[in-house]
Design a protein around this nucleic acid. Structure first.
Lengths: 124, 124
DNA sequence: AATTAAAGACTACACCTGTAATCTATAATT
DNA sequence: AATTATAGATTACAGGTGTAGTCTTTAATT
């Protein structure tokens, strides 16, 4: 699995919003949330390319970036990893921890029920 | 929140198995899973103390270590953090990702149902 | 054509991390 | 009491990370 740092992920995440995109577009998108210098983001883009998380094509003197993987695939792998590390690979203890500390809303419960429902329909 | 590296967490995790415990006991516990040199683990213990994740008392020339927090509290915070970063704070999309990629077993589903059940009982 | 501005490349640098080796103090052993 | 072994403290060092600054090239502007 490609290992991304937090900052790298945030840049990739800005690209996932809509791609392909230029560096300036990504910088623009990040400007609301982060106080990052333009140079910082360029560095991170370079590192992402080096790690194989992005590719680009030249257009004039700019690069047009495209992610090399989908967000859902990346977050799934990260999730598996996370759950393996902290909960020996079982997902229920994570949810249970949230429940115990009253971090679950009725909406969460409804959504979880739907996930379970869909899963069961799929079994038949 | 105290930020621990992976290796630091693994050492703390070995202490959580049973504590208080000496460095040698922790080293012994880790010897099955990790090929770490004793010195490496001592270094990590030192860093954990410095970060405030552990305390110790002297006994003869050894230290007896105790975690400064409970495992459940730590993993809950890590989970919140994780879910915030990758799923905007919603837990269902994580579970849903697992479901879609067929990572959920019947046992997971049963456990999740129980969590939901308990939560609902608790609401009344 | 000459100048300027902006994109990306390269360099920087401190702190974190993984992974120990060496130093120092002291408890245990002879 | 002297020696040794061991616990912890200190030092080491390369690679990753956050966070840019400077250099180089080339498109755009005068």
């Amino acid at each position: 699995m490609i290992e991304l740092s937090k900052a790298e992920f945030d840049v990739l995440d800005a690209l996932w919003i809509n791609y392909p995109a230029t560096a300036s577009q990504i910088i623009e998108r990040l400007s609301d949330d982060k106080q990052w210098h333009e140079k910082t983001i360029k560095t991170l883009l370079g590192r992402l390319v080096k790690k194989g998380a992005l590719t680009f094509e030249k257009e004039g003197r700019q690069y047009i970036y495209t992610p090399c993987m989908e967000r859902a695939d990346y977050t799934l792998k990260e999730s598996q990893n996370f759950i393996e590390r902290f909960f020996s690979g079982r997902i229920a203890p994570l949810v249970s921890g949230f429940a115990k500390s009253e971090q679950l809303s009725q909406q969460d419960i409804n959504e979880l029920k739907k996930v379970i429902d869909d899963w069961e329909k799929n079994q038949k």
